[in-house]
Write a protein that binds this DNA or RNA. Structure first.
Lengths: 167, 167
DNA sequence: ATTAACTTTCATTTATTATTGAAATCTAAA
DNA sequence: TTTAGATTTCAATAATAAATGAAAGTTAAT
């Protein structure tokens, strides 16, 4: 396999993975491209490599910055902006976990909390509903608390966690 | 909040969560409905409650069965099929983790493996590419091995894992 | 073997999400 | 303060994914 072929294989695989994880294909591919690039890249270089429009590139670069997965770099005497990926995988996973907690887990927990406030209603349906949503609430909020805790201890928790659990 | 209102709030929250996790809204809502139902439900009951078509219901029930999240029940002397959700949350999370590993993680690992076979190429680009994809491969495959291990030990690993890590 | 209750399939339609590209905005340098 | 390189915005378009519904398929009971 040639380098170009391997690179495309990887960019596509990462793009596909992204779409399954609430990250659109372009966003994931820009991220992939920056991860494997030995130098930071300008918007034009990214557009050319991935054959995407300026608007699309701009919007997804911003999204990646919002997620904390890439950052801008300024070169002396150059006006244009360059972009580079966070290279530490632990850090990367931490960022993704944090963002997904914020966008998906937290709102779900809020909803589960809210529905607990339901008025007394002693039908079998209402009882099962209350029991199940409470169970889900306890479960998910405990998981989220764990996530938070691990994310905030700035060490390489992912690796550590994996190794701990592999014992 | 009335029961009906709470129920809809929950069905919508679960549907939304699903869309962020590669599970379409209807599939997630059917799952939610069955989780909170004290009895198993027929296809017609599900259609009516969620106001969705027969075709949609049929396809998503099958998908949920494929994922192992719900199962069929047959009632004596009745021709129609009834559906019930797996009630154990640990089991549910295990099923989702397993399915996502199969659909998303495994193919990514395969791609990362493949691109390692790239021919010798000593440009800075190729070297960074090789290093980064190897790093990702090691990381992700170790994570997936852990997942597999935990999923296969049929205990309530999610709870245990969380508690272990909360220490 | 035929009927009728029930389920599945899939071509078409609808809804959702992503992408484009040109105009507007921003900003460093002249 | 004007210019020009560069980025952002967003209405329009394209691509993708989900939902419909009617016809085809299944199967238990007669």
């Amino acid at each position: 396999m040639e380098f170009e072929e391997a690179k495309n294989r990887f960019l596509n695989a990462w793009g596909d993975l992204g779409t399954k994880w609430g990250i659109n294909k372009t966003m994931a591919q820009i991220h992939a491209l920056l991860m494997i690039s030995p130098t930071s890249l300008s918007m034009d270089e990214i557009m050319e490599e991935l054959e995407i429009s300026r608007g699309n590139t701009s919007m997804n670069l911003r999204a990646l910055i919002d997620w904390g997965l890439i950052y801008k770099e300024y070169k002396a005497g150059e006006r244009r902006e360059y972009f580079a990926a966070e290279q530490d995988i632990d850090q990367m996973i931490r960022k993704v976990a944090l963002e997904r907690s914020k966008r998906e887990i937290k709102p779900t927990i809020k909803a589960l909390e809210d529905v607990q406030q339901m008025q007394k209603d002693n039908t079998a349906e209402a009882r099962q509903f209350k029991a199940k949503t409470k169970q889900l609430y306890d479960y998910i909020s405990q998981g989220d608390r764990m996530l938070e805790k691990l994310v905030n201890q700035k060490e390489n928790w992912v690796t550590k966690t994996i190794l701990k659990l592999m014992r």
